[in-house]
Amino acid sequence: MVYFPDGAAGDRFEEKEFKGPLAHITRQALSFIKAQYLKEAVVKHPDRAEAERFWNFPYAAIEEAVVNAVYHRSYEIREPIEIRIGEFLKELDLTEGRSTGLPKILRVMQSNGSPMPVFETDEERSYFLIRLPIHAGSCLAINEC
Results as ranks from 00 to 15, higher is better:
V2I: 15
D6L: 13
D6V: 10
G7P: 03
G7M: 07
A9V: 13
D11F: 09
D11C: 07
D11G: 12
F13R: 14
E14S: 11
K16H: 11
E17V: 15
E17S: 05
F18K: 05
F18R: 08
G20L: 05
G20D: 08
P21H: 10
A23H: 12
A23N: 14
H24I: 11
H24P: 02
H24D: 15
I25R: 09
I25T: 15
T26L: 07
R27V: 06
Q28K: 14
L30V: 08
I33T: 08
K34R: 04
A35I: 04
Q36E: 14
Y37N: 10
Y37D: 02
K39Q: 12
A41W: 06
V42C: 11
V43M: 07
V43I: 09
K44N: 14
P46C: 08
P46L: 04
R48P: 01
A49F: 11
A49M: 05
E50Y: 05
E50H: 07
E52C: 10
F54A: 08
F54L: 05
F54E: 00
N56L: 01
P58M: 01
Y59T: 12
Y59G: 09
A61C: 02
A61V: 10
I62K: 02
A65D: 01
V67M: 03
N68H: 03
A69F: 03
A69C: 07
A69D: 04
V70S: 11
H72K: 08
H72V: 09
S74Y: 00
R78V: 11
E79C: 06
E79L: 08
E82I: 08
R84N: 14
R84L: 11
I85P: 01
I85V: 14
G86D: 04
G86N: 00
F88L: 06
K90T: 08
K90A: 12
K90D: 12
E91C: 04
E91W: 11
L94Q: 07
L94D: 01
R98V: 13
S99Q: 13
S99K: 14
S99N: 13
T100F: 05
G101N: 12
G101C: 04
L102H: 04
K104V: 10
L106H: 09
L106R: 15
R107M: 15
R107H: 13
M109L: 11
Q110K: 15
S111G: 08
S111W: 12
G113R: 08
S114Q: 00
P115Q: 02
P115W: 06
P115R: 05
M116G: 12
P117F: 02
P117Y: 02
F119P: 08
E120W: 05
D122F: 09
D122L: 04
R125S: 13
F128M: 01
I130M: 15
R131K: 12
L132S: 03
H135C: 02
G137S: 03
G137M: 01
C139I: 15
L140H: 10
N143W: 13
E144M: 14
E144W: 10
E144L: 13
C145D: 06
